[in-house]
Simulated scan of single mutants.
Amino acid sequence: MNDKIISFIRELYGEQENLIPLHAPLFLGKEKAYLEHCVDTTFVSSVGKFVDQFEEMVTDYTGVAGAIACVNGTCALQAALTLSGVEPGDLVITQALSFVATANAISHCGAEPVFLDSDADTMGLSPKALKAFLEGETKPGANGPVLKATGQRVAAVVPMHVFGHSCQIEEIVSICSEWDVELVEDAAEALGSYRNDRHLGSFGRYGVLSFNGNKTITTGGGGMLLVNDPELIASARHKMTTAKLPHPWEFNHDQVAWNFRMPNINAALGCAQMEYLDDILASKRAVAMQYRDFFADIPEIHFYEDLPGSKGNYWLCAIGMKDKSARDQLLEEANGAGVMMRPVWRLLSDLPMYKNAMRDDLSVAEDLVNRVVNIPSSAQEKMIS
């Protein structure tokens, strides 16, 4: 069976010998021209027309009130949490099945992560687990729920949309509203993904995107803070830009702040990529649909596809194997044959720096870790150019 899978992927990508990467960027537009403009004008740092243009393009595309370009998604998430009021000593609820940046951003705020379980179908934070934790372990406080055992405030909930698939975000929004706790969306992997025609990352006051080299579009390294309240945009941008007060020559800063702004040279790549984002997404969806049809004939393998009401970007296509042994065998044979595949991340709660963090039952997440495999998911140039 594994030979059949490997052969299908090589046929799908039209590559019979060379390495097939898990996800490679495409540069088919004006990337070189925009980069040359940065060099020719010397505007390669955080001031330049492409930064503003990239922010406007992402704002328009996602439908948020405003977007602030950032050096990477981790810093964008740290900023979102801090701007949401997360303080040292607070608790922040998230899912154990996520990339390490989710927990690191919480730690950078001086807060402590609480790891909850995932839904089997979305791989994202389980609303059932969230509700059970809040009802069982916390009680209402003056500024939101507090942990019964320690009195620590639960300052925020951070669901992450795994591989660009929407979690049950509307249910999570409802629970957060009921318990008066901030929602911060980690939509790092979800550019071009929607829940009921609403772009992911736009359900709370703040959300984040990532533009790392392996994402749907890339700025080399970079992220975006999505702001859904127009009254918060200026203050957020000010804090992310060293809190420097406007003046022709004086260096006046009015608060402790970050130097998180994206350089113009990175934003130039983003602008060029945004110009054909819809084509990239269409190609990735076409690849995903071919996978869906192929795996439909292999009952022991589950292909993760959109749930009703959701439209994912299929950033990384994922399959669920029968068990860990089958997963490991596929990983070994595929990578040995030059077709890159990878397992999902280790649970954050299993990493040494988070082994003592609070957690609830993680049985679904543990099962997913043992069985899920990411398969090659790059957009295909032949479908775009």
Rank of each mutant, 00 (worst) to 15 (best):
M160L: 14
H247C: 09
I217F: 01
G204K: 03
W258C: 08
S193Y: 05
S174Q: 08
L245Y: 06
S202A: 09
V157M: 03
L232T: 15
S202P: 00
D180S: 15
E171D: 14
R237L: 12
W249G: 08
N259L: 05
W179E: 13
L225Y: 05
G204A: 07
G222H: 00
R237I: 08
L232Y: 10
R237W: 11
V227T: 11
H199M: 07
E182H: 09
L191D: 07
A188D: 01
N212Y: 13
P145W: 12
C167E: 03
R195E: 10
S235D: 14
K148T: 06
P145L: 10
V227Q: 12
N214P: 00
C176V: 04
L209E: 00
R153D: 04
Y206I: 08
W258G: 11
K244V: 14
N196R: 13
K215W: 00
S174K: 10
V158W: 10
T218E: 03
M224N: 04
L147I: 02
R205H: 12
K215P: 00
D254A: 07
K215T: 15
E189Y: 12
S202Q: 06
V184E: 03
F203G: 01
H247F: 09
V154M: 01
N196S: 12
P246K: 11
Y194S: 04
S235C: 08
K239S: 11
Q152P: 02
P230M: 08
R195F: 13
W179F: 15
P230C: 04
A190C: 11
V227W: 14
N252R: 13
S202C: 12
A236D: 13
E250F: 11
A155P: 06
E182C: 07
R198E: 06
E250M: 14
F211C: 02
S210H: 06
I169C: 09
E182N: 10
W179R: 11
F163H: 14
Q168E: 15
G207Y: 07
F211V: 08
M224K: 02
V184Q: 05
A234H: 10
K148A: 07
P246M: 06
G164C: 06
P230Y: 13
D197G: 08
V256F: 11
M240L: 15
V256P: 03
N228A: 06
L147S: 11
Q168A: 15
W249A: 06
A257I: 00
G207V: 03
L245Q: 10
V162P: 00
H238Q: 12
I169W: 05
N259K: 11
W249R: 10
R205M: 08
A149P: 01
N196T: 08
D180W: 00
N252H: 13
V256Y: 10
W179I: 02
P246T: 10
G220E: 01
G164A: 03
E231Q: 13
E185K: 01
L209H: 13
I217H: 04
V256K: 12
G220W: 01
F211N: 05
N259Y: 08
R195D: 07
Q152E: 13
L147H: 13
A190P: 00
W258Y: 14
L200V: 03
Y194W: 09
V154W: 09
F211R: 08
N228D: 07
L209D: 05
E178D: 09
H161I: 02
R198H: 09
T241N: 14
E250W: 02
L232H: 15
I172P: 01
I217Y: 03
H253V: 06
R195I: 03
V157R: 03
I217L: 13
H165E: 04
